[in-house]
Amino acid sequence: MPRITITSVFVDDQTTALAFYTDVLGFVPKDDVPMGEHRWLTVVSPDQPDGPELLLEPSEHPAVGPYRAALVADGIPCTSFGVDDVVAEHARLTAAGVVFTQPPTTMGPVTTAVLDDTCGNLVQIASFAA
């Protein structure tokens, strides 16, 4: 039975991405291994240091640009992270200068918001009603 140990987002610049995903979003660095001209660069949730890792993957392949441009134009996030309280996270991140394309919106049992990760992607945050 396979387990989900890693997932990835394409990022324009790994150094910028590491800063955003740690300093702004609040993940912590996990692996940082030189690999040719790039790095094997992952972050994890601070409360799950051995949990699933997020790989900050270089976006240099020519297919990535059109793929991401089309998703972003339609407001479609490339991934989604769980938070305890979307409204509180939206307030915290907005104060930190993060741009949202969708403010907190409650739809049935879930509240979501969509932010720009400054690395070329839209990312959804979601919380479920208790």
Binding site: D74, G75, I76, P77, T101, P103, T105, M107, G108, V114
Partner: peptide
């Protein structure tokens, strides 16, 4: 209800609500 939505948000609202 909220002016200025992306296609993603509109689709999500239509599906969920």
């Amino acid at each position: 209800e909220r002016d200025g939505q992306t296609l993603f948000e509109l689709c999500t609202r239509l599906t969920m609500k």
